Computed example of a mutant assay.
Amino acid sequence: MATRLQRIVPLTALLVLALTTSACDTPSPAPPVKSSKNSADSHAPDASASSGAAASVTIVGPAPSDLHDVDWTKTPAPGAFCGVPDLVRFDAQGQATAKSTVWGKVSLMRGRTVLYGDTDGDHRDEAAEYLGCGDGVTQNGQILAAYAVYTHVGKNLAVIGTITPRKKSAAYGTALVGLDFSTGRIVAHEKWYRTNDPHCCPTGDATTVWYRHGDRLTPGTTHVTS
């Protein structure tokens, strides 16, 4: 089996701290991509995706045969993890602002590193893009971190779920520092804050296994490892 089926890619502390940066003059959430009825348009999402799959995933656009070839800087991402109901498009710096139904105006960012691994055994990698949400005002304004997980649905690029931290922190928001892919599951590695931890340095470690059932992700039990 290819070695890239399982890997852990740590995020730097700068990626966590980036959640606190406010985005200026950044775009509003993009509306969901509509499926085109014109079969001659090779750039439109594939309307042949099954109705069952469409009900459990979010189609964001057409997909290349290899997700390593996706231009993530131009790909919208789901905002629901931060209470933003629509897809979000980011500017050239990976920043956006939007209105959350939970927190009001929020600042969102996407990470520069996309993780890959095969979770359905078809020898084609799925992709996981790091996303962050903050209040865009205070220095310690991190609200939530997430990974949006993308796959193929027919010729479409689709989000099958969003991985978020499951271990609650005493202060600040729990960070996600990597994923480990294997068939049928993704292990999320979390860094959580104890009561006296400074903002730079959470000292707690935890893992949560997210199970893939068809085109749906569901979290399992979270294990505190330190």
Rank of each mutant, 00 (worst) to 15 (best):
L131Y: 07
Q93T: 14
C200Y: 01
D122V: 13
V106T: 04
G121K: 11
G94W: 11
S182K: 03
R194G: 14
Y172S: 00
L108I: 09
Y130V: 07
A158D: 03
S107I: 14
T119R: 15
C200L: 07
D120F: 10
W192L: 08
G117H: 04
L131T: 03
C133I: 01
A127V: 02
Q142E: 14
A98M: 05
G161F: 07
L176H: 00
A148W: 03
T195D: 03
A148E: 04
W192T: 03
E129H: 13
A158F: 04
K99A: 12
A145G: 11
Q139W: 00
E129C: 13
T119H: 14
C201L: 10
R110T: 09
T151C: 08
H199R: 02
L176W: 00
T101E: 15
T119E: 15
S182A: 06
L179R: 01
N156I: 06
Q142V: 13
K105Q: 14
Y193Q: 02
G132P: 11
L179P: 07
W103P: 04
D197K: 00
I163D: 07
A127Y: 05
G178Y: 02
G94K: 08
D135V: 13
S100H: 07
R124I: 08
T97Y: 04
R110Y: 07
A175P: 12
P202G: 02
W103K: 09
T183E: 13
V137G: 01
A145S: 13
H123M: 13
Y193H: 06
D135N: 12
T151D: 10
D125M: 11
E190Y: 00
G173T: 03
V114S: 12
C133Y: 01
